[in-house]
Design a protein around this nucleic acid. Structure first.
Lengths: 250, 250
DNA sequence: TTCATTCTTTGATTTGGGTCAAGGTGGCAA
DNA sequence: TTGCCACCTTGACCCAAATCAAAGAATGAA
């Protein structure tokens, strides 16, 4: 379904030390941009649970995920929390031209980020149209994902929500290995039950109950709390109640 | 389905005729681009309730709203409907490089759109960096709005949802007149109760009840079904439970 | 004027998921 | 090996919003 990664310009050679999935910028690097990139680019790693940026903080970099998973969350004064972004390898955080982070950015697994100092990154963008184009494409993809997510939040049942999330994670995970999930599928959940609840607009108890129900109904089985085995991926997709299959193609 | 669009009358204008809020492209028009723009641009109007594009249809144009209000909606097989975009004057629809519409696009009031044939628009974009930059900026704004909307869908109560929607509409409406809403505010609802429900992830009955409740509590009053008077905008904003006030900048 | 249609309101009842509460599980530090 | 702590599960009960049902505007056509 979401073949975004597969359609992305392939990273072949040039970006020396850039991990293969870090295509946000590097996929478009031209040889003569590399030197400049190296001036503004640095790696930074975080542990599971660590907060990278608090909402409201000054944020003087943009970054893309190299490995691991991060989330963006909004929190109301009274503590109600909604996840609004789930970042896998190759995903981009931060907005050129913005001073302050509007969301909490949290590592939910151990995480490696490739960061770019904001000012030089903006200069680079101004000189290198590829980067802006790539960023537009990625932002439009994210907007599509956000809209799918809105359908989930507004109209799906708890069971459908859980199934949908498992499908999404399976797909993102599979795309890291350049495959499409099919038949029997297995992957690790990069989220706690609470984080799943924050993604889905549910409580953690409801998440737990519905995961148990899917297990009881033979749609998934768990090895430990986090490793998920899906015997029939198509059956799980049906539970997710997704309207458009395929779709997604530009 | 949208054959009418293909046969749309070509309107020859220069940017002087562009309504002031129709800034998506025109705000950045350079004099030497005008001739080209006129080749690809045409106006098209729709009546309230009309469907501009069905999800899945071929869509060979992009467009921006000149006047009126349109919505983007997703529909599940069983009919459950979630609005995923609410377009006011100056907002942009369509994705360069995409063949097929992923959402229903519906006029909820009488509507005037400024359309651009897709292929020439893409060519124009390739030659005119301003347009891509503007589009990136607008898309990032939309993504922020989508994330605020996700918080609403996932975590707000019915009452907070209604208050939030009224605040959003008041703000968009006020911005058309280049003001910020403050104190006593009045505006017309461009949506039916059902469309409000589809925005908020509620049923129309709940919308009706909660509007009545806000009325009973003196937070709003209605003249007819659609004209809303808010005696104290700040008090309404409090009901909306918004975390970040202001924000919105850069 | 009457009728039909579309939109809206309100009431009665049901229910899916939230809330509160109590245990279970597994990793790891001492 | 014990105890702690973070995470997860399950049960009992409750409530906000959905569902089902009916009737009240407003509009416009005949």
């Amino acid at each position: 379904m979401n073949m975004a990664l597969l359609n992305a310009p392939k990273v072949s050679t040039n970006c020396g030390d850039c991990p293969i999935r870090h295509r946000a910028v590097c996929a478009n690097c031209e040889a003569d941009e590399l030197a400049r990139l190296d001036e503004v680019k640095y790696y930074r790693s975080f542990e599971a649970g660590q907060v990278l940026v608090w909402s409201g903080d000054h944020m003087d970099f943009v970054a893309s995920v190299v490995s691991g998973v991060a989330t963006l969350t909004q929190v109301m004064e009274d503590g109600r929390t909604q996840m609004v972004g789930l970042l896998f390898p190759s995903d981009f955080v931060g907005r050129p031209g913005r001073e302050t982070a509007p969301y909490n950015v949290i590592a939910t697994t151990d995480l490696l980020m490739c960061c770019f100092r904001k000012k030089p990154f903006e200069d680079l963008m101004a000189r290198t149209p590829h980067i802006g184009e790539r960023l537009l494409e990625m932002t439009l993809d994210e907007l599509d994902a956000a809209r799918e997510w809105m359908l989930l939040l507004g109209r799906k049942t708890a069971r459908e929500k859980i199934a949908s999330l498992l499908v999404i994670i399976a797909q993102r995970d599979a795309s890291l290995h350049l495959r499409a999930p099919k038949g029997r599928v297995a992957f690790d959940l990069p989220l706690t039950r609470e984080a799943m609840a924050d993604y889905l607009g549910l409580t953690l108890e409801t998440v737990s109950r519905q995961v148990s129900a899917l297990k009881r109904d033979g749609l998934v089985s768990l090895e430990g709390k986090r490793h998920v085995v899906v015997p029939d991926f198509d059956r799980l997709k049906e539970e997710a109640g997704d309207d458009t299959d395929g779709g997604m193609l530009s």
